[in-house]
Write a protein that binds this DNA or RNA. Structure first.
Length: 122
RNA sequence: CAAGUAAGCCGGGUGACCGCCCUCUUUUGGCAAGAUGCCAGAGGGGGAGGAAAGUCCGAGCUCCACCGGGCAGGAUGCUGGGUAACGCCCAGGAGGGGUGACCCUACGGAAAGUGCCACAGAAACAUACCGGCCCGCUCAGUGCGGACUAAGGGUGAAAUGGUGAGGUAAGAGCUCACCAGCGGCCGGGUGACCGGUCGGCUGGGCAAACCCCAUCCGGAGCAAGACCGAAUAGGAGGACGGCAAGGACGCCCGGCCUGUCCUCGGGUUGGUCGCUUGAGGUGGCGGGUAACUGCCAUCCUAGAUAGAUGGUCACCACUUGACCAGAAGCAGGAUGAAGGCUUCGGCCGUAAACUGCUCUCUGUCAAGUACAGAACUCGGCUUACAGGCUUGCUUGGCUA
RNA sequence: CGGGGUGUAGCGCAGCCUGGUUAGCGCGCAUGGUUUGGGACCAUGAGGUCGGCGGUUCAAAUCCGCCCACCCCGA
């Protein structure tokens, strides 16, 4: 994903953190908010508590690859926050977890159009 | 072959598809439009480490108007050399450890001064508890008083040179020999120091206690710093004004410079440069024991900024484990078969089936493949690290 | 990038600067007493790699070096 598809400013992260809704599992926390653009923007958070730089970079790359491969609705800012359990998980486990969270958040692309419109109006 | 020791090196590979960062090209498309610029696409090239880590030292670079002196503070500490510099490296000396190859050392000064040395012990810096020996009195092996002594005992981490002989009332460097230490002289070495000789006999430890001596050190750090853009109100109060205040760690002094300083309040958290060509790498020929260095040739090798190298699959490599099959080895089978030699007493000579073990080699399956991610750049140090490779040397065993 | 602090019994702390003689205090814990019983109180007791490794010293929680974990501050 290019620079336009990433959250890069502290103000952008702060916006998602305060305005967005959150869904969580044992590996990762997803926070998302509609951004009014025609495309999605992503941010990945790996705190120092998780491990050294190699561990944190690897988790970011895994999540970036997972998010890229899952088709979703457009127009959202999403922040993925890695939790401690993600350190030992592999690509397949994390992919399944992210898919579950996106389905619960109704951002996954196969969710029906009526349902999505209903949620936004609500 | 085994164990060890020193030095050095590597630290997964190949392919397919998808994706990221930088850069170049583009008669590809869109926007704006004189060159040009912005967005997207296509094609080419490049894209983490030996420690990129910890941030423990040293520098470059940038800013703080500036210069000099002193105090305080900090660092280093055998000698010589290397280096831009260092707390680093090399060589050497001394001391210590190891059978050895080799390794380790904060290794200046305790007659400059101050301080400390618990407990024990008579005594920890100047001393005499037990004891030894002599004299006098008492008296029949006891006691008292006085003088000498530091060999022996005991305490301690440490007790004032050690061993032997002479000597003496008993002893003592009191005398002598050797050893250790100290000082002078001579010789060698740039030096630390070493060797020789002579002398008088000497008289603890701690400076990672204060300290003394020698050498070095202005401060802050790429969020340094420069530019563009945006935003706010270029605001309020106070101090002192050439005898004042301030001038980049703290304090003092001298010169020099200047309206300076303090408090409150307000705005910004965007972009570009710095930003990778450097005490640079590689090779050759010289100098040097070496660290290192001179000359010549040649190469350009990451530049992100919520922070670029990843994901999936296949094959191979390595490690570990399991299992079965085969090969190999060992033990039983073997109280000596078959066979051979014979002086007829004996002697020589171990093949296989089968069973068990080893886990060396081949095959199959499964799991794993360390430590760890550039952030201004170099030189070091320290710490972490699966597994593997090369070379020299040492010790021990076996064979010839 | 720069600077500072902490680590000692289950918990919270002292001792460290100026090395030594029993590493101590409070709460908690165990046992006994007191009470009809509990609490409170009294008495006794257990519990320590002094964060780790190495060095200096006769001797280290204390001094020095390296490492680990946690916390805080400034630009």
């Amino acid at each position: 994903m290019g620079k336009g598809e990433r959250l890069r400013k502290d103000s952008q992260f702060a916006n998602v953190r305060t305005q967005g809704r959150a869904w969580a599992c044992e590996f990762v926390v997803l926070k998302a908010v509609p951004n009014g653009l025609g495309w999605n923007r992503y941010g990945f958070v790996t705190s120092k508590r998780l491990g050294n730089a190699v561990v944190r970079n690897r988790l970011k790359r895994l999540f970036r690859e997972i998010v890229r491969s899952i088709p979703t609705e457009s127009g959202w800012d999403m922040v993925y926050i890695a939790r401690n359990g993600a350190k030992t998980a592999n690509y397949q486990q994390l992919g399944a977890a992210v898919t579950r969270l996106l389905r619960r958040a109704q951002i996954l692309a196969d969710v029906s159009e009526a349902k999505r419109v209903g949620r936004i109006q609500e």
